[in-house]
Structures are given as C-alpha cells and as structure tokens.
Design a protein around this nucleic acid. Structure first.
Lengths: 194, 194
DNA sequence: GAAATTTTGTGACAAATGTCAATTGACGCT
DNA sequence: AGCGTCAATTGACATTTGTCACAAAATTTC
C-alpha cells in the first residue's frame, strides 16, 4: 500500500503543496481496487459514487451511440478516472469506464471525499484544482475534435499521449478521435511511408 | 447598479445558497463595464485578469486558426464570460472575447476574486461550482462536436440555446458548430422545407 | 432612398471521410 | 504446423462536407 500511496502523494503535491499530516487524513478513506482487463470500473446507468487514482494500468471512458462504443477518454497511470458529471451531481451516469489493461486503483467514495473536504480545506483545494485541470483538458479536446482534420487529430494524440498509440487497439483510438477505423488506418500508413 | 446586481444575485444563489451579508462582501469588488458591439472584452495575446457576469447583451469567445475566427462559445445575459485557462493560470490568452451586441457586464478582477475567496469560504464554493458547471458544458460540447453530424449539431444548438439562432449571424454559428457557412445554410433550408 | 457593403443562399465541383466487402496479418490453442 | 478468431489493412464506391464562384437579400452608410 505504501509504495502505491507515494505516487498518489506526488500527484496531489503537484496540484497543491500539502504537508504530510494533512495527507495522512486521507488514508482511512482510501481503498485499493483491482480491475481485470475488460471489466467495468463504472457502469452506465448507475450513479457513479467513486473516483479513482490509477496506480497502474489503463482505462477507457465511453458511452454508447447507436450501439457502438464512443470513447471519450483514456486514463493511464498517475491520473484520475471517474464519470465526472455523475460523480459531482450524483446523477445516473451516461458513460461506462472499462479496463483496457489489468489495473490497480486507489479509490475514494463520494461520501468519503465529502468528509475529507470537511476535515481540511486543503483537500477542498485539491478537488477544485482537479476540476480546473479537467476543464483545461476538455477545452483542448473541443478544439481538436471540433475543428481539426483527422490527420491533425491523430498527430495531436501522438504529441500529447504517445504511449496510448502503443497500448490501445486502433479501433478504440479511432473512436476516441471521432473517425472511422479505416480512415485512421489509412492515415497511419501515410505517416509511416514518410 | 442595484437592479443589475439582483440578476447576479439570482445567478449565485442558483449555484449555492448564500445569505445577504455574504453576498454584500462582493459589492466593493464589482465594477460595471459596457462593451459596444464589435469591441473586445478580452484580447488574445494578453493575460486575462477578469471575469464577467453578463447583465445584458451577447459575447462570443473565439480564437484564430489560419486567419479565421473559430468560435468556441457564445455567452448571453445571466451567464459568465472569461478566458478560463488564462484567468485561472494567469497565462497568455489564446482566445479573444468580442461583443456581438452592445453589452453590460459586472466585472471582477482576478486579484479581487482571490481576496473575496479569503473573506468567506462560501465564495470559494461559488468558484468551485462555476468551474464544475463549465466542465459539464464542455463535456456535452465534446460529444456533439466530435461525434455528431452537422445536422445533429445544429439541432442540438436549437435545443440548448434557441435564442442564439435569432441573434447571431449564420457565419458565426457555422464556426461555432465546426461546419462551413454554406453547409449550415443548406441544412437550414432543408429543415425549413420540412 | 440610392449606393456600397456585408451577409446569406445556391449551383458545380473537389476533397475528406464513411461504409461495405474482401484480404491479410497476428496470436493463441490444440 | 494447422486451425480458428479477432484485429488491421486495403480497394471500390457512397456520402458528407468543403471550396469557389456568383447571385440575391439584408444592412449600413451617406
């Protein structure tokens, strides 16, 4: 548990500076959860009442459109995964979160997080920063998804999350970029030839 | 000033319940700013150090891509306008905000807002909620922009912000939806005939 | 109110991307 | 090695959307 916690601590300290005793407050609320490849962390149709810090592994967030998976996000080690809107508003989640690799997560429940917020305002600040970060990520995504060509979108992905290309099936990447699997395949072969 | 403030108060109370005395704390930090149609509220290349609540009028947020305006958001009365990333991180803004109509704004500076946060944690909560709201908006936008057809995007706009159609030139709407002016024009004529 | 400017609509064509079908390639299983 | 399964590639063609040119309509300016 302790080696796993240190990665989490690093992540937190990157958002706000926090002394050890404040960090310790969180310990009693955290649980380790392991998800096998292919299994759900969050399931569409339920209320999402937990948020995960990813120790190792890789998850995808997706929703269903006309029966197909539409991937909205890949979440890799040292980042956060949750169904954001469902978690904050405690509404039914429109999306599922599934493990693309065997994954180990540090999980905190909504109710535990609310308690933690009460214990120390520093943790509130953490929550605030996390949401801000998510906002910035989404803004960038709006720009590429909405206004860039398929090629530009693929290049942006290589730029921002190069490891994803290696670890995720091409069909999942295509869905994430909002293009067909075939189009992405053609883009790749063009790039390779260069 | 007071009639204008009451709209702002309503907006705040919709995010968190707040008693009058806490609301009053803000008064000394607020300024009224009027922007004529066509003028900038925020200019690309500068650090955005203010955030506006819109009393009346309409603004668009845009950035330049290959010399063209790309509209990322329309902000109408009773909502907030700012260059979010620039404001929170105090970095140079990639986007400008321009008035599409003569507009009246309640403006608070970054430094004033930070002071207000110190005065009462309730105001911090307001800030937190505002960011959360922005996140939810952006998520919805990622879905339509990235994965819906031009027709679906236009229908979604009619659904969510019907007044925009009446008030904004079609070329600005096209840019907002990530389609060409001509394509949007054709979509409209199809819908009318039905 | 006429002229000038801007915005919008429409046709013809081009480019980008999607769809369908068939093929190839990778990988595990026996 | 051979088989089966699934993922990825490729070709042919359809559809969507973009681009360019120009006309019509609306708006602004004088």
């Amino acid at each position: 548990m302790n080696t796993e916690l240190s990665n989490f601590k690093h992540y937190i300290n990157n958002l706000v500076s926090m002394d050890d005793s404040t960090f310790e407050l969180a310990k009693e609320f955290l649980k380790i959860e392991r998800i096998a490849k292919g299994d759900d962390f969050i399931t569409q149709g339920k209320v999402c009442n937990k948020i995960a810090f990813i120790i190792s592994g890789l998850l995808k967030i997706y929703y269903l459109k006309d029966g197909n998976h539409v991937n909205t996000c890949f979440c890799a080690e040292n980042s956060i995964a949750s169904s954001f809107e469902s978690f904050t508003n405690q509404t039914v989640s429109q999306e599922s979160i599934e493990a693309l690799e065997d994954s180990t997560l540090i999980v905190i429940s909504k109710s535990a997080l609310d308690k933690l917020y009460q214990l120390h305002s520093k943790w509130q600040e953490v929550g605030h920063k996390m949401v801000e970060k998510e906002c910035v990520r989404l803004s960038a995504r709006v720009q590429t998804l909405g206004f860039d060509s398929a090629l530009e979108k693929y290049k942006a992905l290589i730029e921002n999350q190069p490891h994803i290309i290696q670890r995720v099936p091409i069909q999942d990447i295509a869905s994430y970029l909002g293009v067909s699997r075939e189009t992405l395949s053609r883009i790749r072969s063009k790039i390779v030839k260069h």
